[in-house]
C-alpha cells in the first residue's frame, strides 16, 4: 500500500505528537538526573554535572537496592517459567477435569489487586520467615505473573501442531527429554515474551515489594521512596529513576520483534 503525500504528512505528525507525549516525562527525568540540586555539594544549584551518578556509586544502600531488585525479579522470572511451562503444556494439549476452573482461577488472581491480598500475604510470609528476603517477593509476584506466563506460553505451544509432539514420542523421547530438547527451542520466542512481561511487571510492582521488606532487602523502588525526606535531592532521585529504567528498556529491545505476539487469554 502506497500512501498519498498528505496522508503521509498526517501520519508523521501523529507520530511526532506521540513521541513528544511519551518522551517528555522521560526527558524531564533524565535531564534532572544530570543536574545538581543540593546546595552542600559546593557547586551552584542547577549546573550540569555527573555528581548524582557519582553519589549513587558511592552509596552502598543504593547499589544494594539494585542488586535486591534484580535478585527477586530474576527469581520470579525463572519460577514463572519453570512452573508455567508444564502448566501451559497441559492446558494446551490435554482436557482434564477442572481445567476450566484452573483458567478462571488464573484470571481471577491476575485481576485481584495486590493491595487486597497484602495483609494476609504479609502474615503468612512472616510465619514462613520470608519477610525481608528476595525469595518472598519473587514468590509473591507469581500471583500476577504466573497467569501471564501461562497464557503466553499456552498460545505459543498451541501454534505448534500436535504431530510435532507425537513424532517426538515415536522417536523415543521421554516427556522431560522432549521438553528440554524439542519444545523449548521450538517456542523460544514465546519464552522470551513471557520472560519479558514477567520481568517488567515484577520490576515495576511496589505494593508487595513495600510490605515484604520491613528492615532490609529493600528493592530499588523503595530505595527511591526512602530518598524523599525533608530536603529531597531531586537530582539524585531522578538519576536513580533513570537507572531503574535501564533493564526494562534493554528488555524491550531484546523482544522487539515478538512483543506483539503475546497475550491471548484463555478462559
Amino acid at each position: 500500500m502506497v500512501a498519498s503525500v498528505p496522508k503521509r504528512l498526517g501520519r508523521a505528525l501523529v507520530l511526532l505528537v506521540l513521541a513528544v507525549f511519551i518522551l517528555l516525562p522521560l526527558a524531564q527525568t533524565i535531564l534532572l538526573g544530570y543536574i545538581s540540586t543540593m546546595p552542600k555539594t559546593g557547586m551552584p544549584i542547577g549546573s550540569f554535572s555527573l555528581i548524582n551518578y557519582g553519589n549513587i556509586v558511592k552509596s552502598p544502600v543504593l547499589l544494594a537496592s539494585i542488586g535486591n531488585s534484580l535478585t527477586y525479579v530474576l527469581l520470579n522470572v525463572s519460577l514463572c517459567l519453570v512452573a508455567g511451562l508444564p502448566a501451559a503444556y497441559a492446558l494446551s494439549r490435554y482436557r482434564f477435569v477442572g481445567d476450566k476452573h484452573v483458567l478462571l482461577m488464573l484470571l481471577t488472581f491476575r485481576l485481584t489487586p495486590p493491595v487486597a491480598l497484602s495483609l494476609p500475604v504479609f502474615l503468612l510470609f512472616a510465619e514462613l520467615n520470608l519477610v525481608d528476603s528476595p525469595i518472598g517477593i519473587g514468590l509473591v509476584h507469581c500471583l500476577f505473573n504466573l497467569p501471564i506466563a501461562i497464557w503466553i506460553l499456552e498460545r505459543f505451544i498451541s501454534e505448534i501442531p500436535r504431530a510435532f509432539d507425537e513424532t517426538a514420542f515415536l522417536d523415543g523421547h521421554s516427556l522431560p527429554g522432549f521438553f528440554v530438547k524439542m519444545l523449548i527451542p521450538a517456542i523460544a520466542p514465546g519464552i522470551a515474551v513471557a520472560a519479558f512481561f514477567c520481568f517488567i511487571f515484577s520490576w515495576v510492582e511496589v505494593v508487595f515489594a513495600r510490605i515484604l521488606t520491613v528492615t532490609s532487602g529493600k528493592p530499588i523502588t523503595m530505595a527511591i521512596n526512602a530518598m524523599f525526606t525533608f530536603q529531597t535531592d531531586v537530582g539524585l532521585v531522578m538519576a536513580m529513576t533513570t537507572l531503574s529504567l535501564v533493564p526494562g528498556v534493554a528488555m524491550i529491545y531484546f523482544v522487539r520483534n515478538h512483543i506483539s505476539k503475546g497475550f491471548a487469554v484463555r478462559v
Binding site: A19, P25, T29, V204, T221, I224, M251, I252, S260
Partner: peptide, 26 residues
Amino acid sequence: RIFVLMLVALPLVVPWNMIAMMWQSL
C-alpha cells in the same frame, strides 16, 4: 513499525511509584 511499538512500550517499564513523581516534576 517496530520503533513505534518500542516507543509506546517505554512507559510500561517505569516503576509505578515513580510515575506520579515524574509527572509532578514535569
